[in-house]
Amino acid sequence: MAGVYDFTATSLAGEQVPLKRFEGQVLLIVNTASACGFTPQYKGLEALHQALAPRGFSVLGFPCNQFGRQEPGDARQIEQFCASNYAITFPMFAKIDVNGSGAHPLYQYLKNAKSGLLGSSIKWNFTKFLTDRSGQVVARHAPTAKPEGLTKEIEALL
């Protein structure tokens, strides 16, 4: 059975990262944007990452410019924004598409594994997918779901 560990993604630094590197961890995979009303969620995502990483948890951020063109920067600008505004330490990946024919294969898998309220398409920035330690998608959360509100659900998987 396929899982998130079967995919590879490009880091902001341009490195090919096999997601197998995160095998055995609980993951919160989020499509992000620097100029969105939900952008302050970076603070909560980083807090979750800091608090739970020692127990086998990681947030993975995937910038996306498909919603209101709210992630217009290149990799260097995205990295600089995340570092200077939110001191992000969790892995951030290169900008991707999450919908359409050019959607990253990881996101094709995530959307097929857990459909949203209005179907499988991602509706906006900061949609969150939670995976268990075996790489299976166990939950999908809308952009309005605050990261701190997911703590108990994540801890139950740790």
Rank of each mutant, 00 (worst) to 15 (best):
I122M: 10
R133E: 10
L118T: 14
I96P: 08
K123W: 10
L117Q: 11
P143E: 03
A87T: 08
L110D: 07
S120P: 14
H141E: 11
V59S: 05
A51R: 13
L130K: 05
W124M: 11
K128F: 13
S58F: 02
Q136D: 09
G116N: 01
M92D: 11
N112F: 01
R55W: 01
L118S: 11
I88Q: 03
N99G: 14
R55A: 11
G119T: 06
G100T: 05
L60S: 08
Y86W: 10
K111D: 12
R69Q: 14
V98Y: 00
P54F: 03
I96R: 05
Q77D: 13
N85D: 08
A75V: 02
R140P: 02
L110W: 09
I78H: 04
N85Y: 15
R76C: 12
T89C: 15
A103R: 07
L110S: 05
A103S: 10
L117Y: 10
Y86K: 01
I96A: 07
N112Q: 15
N65C: 14
G149A: 13
Q108N: 14
N112C: 12
L118C: 07
K95L: 15
V59R: 05
F93H: 09
P143W: 02
K95Y: 14
S101C: 11
L52D: 00
I88W: 01
A139W: 03
I122F: 04
G68R: 02
N65H: 12
P147M: 10
D132P: 08
F81D: 01
S58W: 04
Q108G: 15
Q70L: 07
L52V: 00
A94D: 15
G61T: 10
Q77V: 01
G149W: 05
P63Q: 08
Q80S: 14
I78S: 05
A145V: 07
G119W: 00
F93Y: 11
I88E: 00
P143Y: 06
N99P: 08
R140H: 09
L60D: 03
G149S: 15
V137L: 02
S134F: 04
A139H: 08
F67R: 02
G100V: 03
F90K: 00
L150P: 06
A103T: 03
S101N: 12
N125I: 04
T144D: 13
K128T: 11
E148L: 15
P105N: 04
A113Q: 09
S84L: 14
L150F: 02
Y86M: 13
C64M: 06
V137P: 08
V59L: 07
H49A: 07
L150Q: 04
L52I: 01
A51L: 08
F57P: 05
V138K: 06
L110K: 10
Q66E: 11
S101Y: 12
H49V: 03
S58N: 03
N65L: 13
G135M: 00
T127W: 03
L118R: 12
K114T: 02
A142E: 09
A53S: 15
E148A: 14
R133S: 05
V138L: 02
R55D: 09
F81R: 06
H141R: 13
F67H: 04
G56R: 02
F126D: 03
G119R: 07
A75Q: 08
F67S: 01
F129I: 13
P147H: 10
W124Q: 02
M92C: 15
A51M: 09
A83F: 10
F67G: 01
Q108L: 14
L117I: 02
Q136E: 10
T144G: 15
L150S: 03
